[in-house]
């Protein structure tokens, strides 16, 4: 028994001394950079795309079956390609945009291409939750479609959009970890290079913990923001 405790103590000491703090800090920063840059750009594309999907949808304010179906198919195509494949598929494009196909910057174009359609669907879904009666009231007041979008839809769906953001950013985090497979940098890269190729279980374990903490923080912050911004809840 005493032997076991001593041994355990020994193992823990070994783990701590073997930890390369610089590696973890750098790769965490790389991960954060990838996740937030690509989320930001993906949202710049995803919000307008989601809005167009919503307004051209059936019985919406600017129904257009043709446009809706075209966009819907495009979104579905990009969503059905596995990220790891997309990563390789869009390499020429990545090279053209960021002039490299390795490192954290190189992961951003495929992350954006993959996340934007996903975010568009999340946004479309959030807008669907806006009370049709409120949209009708705005129409009755003489609001234009653009005013309905900016002053009704995006305002009324804010809490739901924030919940969607928590889910979308977490998904992007998951994708970004896959980027390690092509030397993309970040925590995923560390997990694959050290944990998988070199079979360093401790490194693998630590990166997983770090990723888990990041997911928890993202989830917590956005849910908190969503709840705080929702005026339907009486605090």
């Amino acid at each position: 028994m005493i032997f076991l405790v001593l041994n355990l103590n020994n193992i823990i000491n070994q783990i701590i001394s073997s930890l390369d703090f610089e590696l973890y800090i750098n790769s965490t920063i790389e991960s954060i950079f990838m996740i937030f840059t690509s989320s930001f750009i993906a949202y710049l594309i995803g919000i307008p795309l989601g809005v167009v999907l919503f307004i051209t949808g059936k019985d919406s304010i600017s129904q257009n079956d043709f446009l809706y179906n075209i966009l819907s198919i495009i979104v579905n195509i990009f969503r059905s390609i596995p990220f790891i494949i997309l990563l390789i598929l869009v390499m020429p494009f990545t090279k053209f945009v960021v002039h490299t196909v390795i490192g954290p910057s190189a992961v951003i174009p495929p992350l954006v291409i993959s996340a934007a359609p996903y975010i568009a669907r999340m946004v479309e879904q959030s807008l669907c939750e806006v009370d049709k009666g409120v949209i009708e009231a705005a129409k009755a007041m003489g609001a234009s479609n653009f005013q309905i979008i900016t002053k009704v839809l995006l305002v009324e769906s804010k809490p739901s959009l924030l919940v969607g953001a928590a889910i979308s950013i977490t998904t992007i985090l998951g994708y970004s970890a896959m980027a390690g497979a092509v030397g993309g940098g970040g925590l995923g890269d560390v997990a694959i290079r050290y944990g998988y190729h070199r079979y360093e279980q401790v490194t693998m374990f630590v990166t997983v913990i770090l990723l888990l903490i990041m997911v928890q923080i993202i989830q917590y912050v956005f849910m908190k923001l969503a709840k705080k911004s929702d005026k339907r809840i009486i605090n």
Partner: peptide, 15 residues
């Protein structure tokens, strides 16, 4: 032409 509704249809997220 103003209009009012059974379910009021106010913007829930603004005061």
């Amino acid at each position: 032409i103003g209009m009012i509704f059974q379910n009021f249809n106010l913007l829930e997220q603004v005061n």
